[in-house]
Design a protein around this nucleic acid. Sequence first.
DNA 1: TAAAAACTATACCGTTCGGTATACATATTG
DNA 2: CAATATGTATACCGAACGGTATAGTTTTTA
Lengths: 189, 189
Amino acid sequence: MDNRSNILQVATELFASHGYDAVGVQQIASDAGVTKPTLYHYFNSKQGLFETLIKEKSEPLISDLREVSRYQGDITKSITDVTQFYFEYLDREPTFYRLILMTRFMPPSSDVYDIVTQVQHQQFDLLQQLFKDATEDHGNMRGRHRWYAVSLLGTIDTYIVMSLQGYIHLNEPHRVYRIVHQFMHGIFS
Amino acid sequence: MDNRSNILQVATELFASHGYDAVGVQQIASDAGVTKPTLYHYFNSKQGLFETLIKEKSEPLISDLREVSRYQGDITKSITDVTQFYFEYLDREPTFYRLILMTRFMPPSSDVYDIVTQVQHQQFDLLQQLFKDATEDHGNMRGRHRWYAVSLLGTIDTYIVMSLQGYIHLNEPHRVYRIVHQFMHGIFS
DNA sequence: TAAAAACTATACCGTTCGGTATACATATTG
DNA sequence: CAATATGTATACCGAACGGTATAGTTTTTA
């Protein structure tokens, strides 16, 4: 592996394990087997490293989600596909997803606030579009797009966070059904 | 104000604004108008300071939530009261609540992981108890207590986070109705 | 009132922080 | 092949990190 990719990979793991502020550049360089000036050569700064990492690794996430969230006339299927997608993404990219979860509420003072907020809003926007497109078939959703997007992704993420903490257990394939069913039909059915 | 309280207050604000790892002890001491040994006199360590802060400030949150979440035969009212409670808490203690939100997914490697996870689980446990108590009147909730607790609080928190990011707008009193209605009845009504 | 406890400070510790200057090595280009 | 571009290193910078030793001050207690 080339140094650039190696540094990105190591940084992802360290940031995901400890958070952006708790990981130093020297640690990343050491673990990647290079020196700091080498790291700075590629990324210019710690912030640059993090931003590069987030941009490059979120791109496939966003483009895949764009495909998955495309409304095709069946809202149940779309919501199920989206929910399934996130769990599969967690299984496929556990490290990066943990990092994403960790940045859900980042202080605006952080020098990487903009990039993480951007990735978040991209996700929410795609889900919102799903609900917008579904409005033709489900008029009651009118005006609630953002709310539903926030509610759906917020719920998925909280389930995942709580399962990572051992508070709940997500067993295949119950997890998807459970979330989707409750999201769509509430708690009385 | 005595130094101890002053330090706690300043620390809360700084941690809420920047996160635990991005705030140094020297900064807290300076802003509180004391020196580091004074701070260490009261709290022994940075971790001790944070833990004291979380414990003392979460206690009223937990005990108030315990009152509010007590099921009294009307599940709609309980869920509404809980939701209302969180928004009121946000209005009453915006700084500490931001800090709580920021710790929703903390790396297990953090030396304050235990204390923040404990406060979280306390909240979820209280909500879970609410759904357990409601099971007598709503048998369909059986076995779903944890899921509903996670879903409700996760949704509330995500709404709040996204409103703090300017993604959605929470206007009195729509916000409570919206969340409660969707949580209870789903997206088709 | 003297001793003990609680409180507060100055100065210091070794390590780490993000970043930089300079030099050297390797690969590419004309 | 020499010059340029790209890549990698050693050594260094000032500031900040969490924490500590020691001394002084104030309050409390017997």
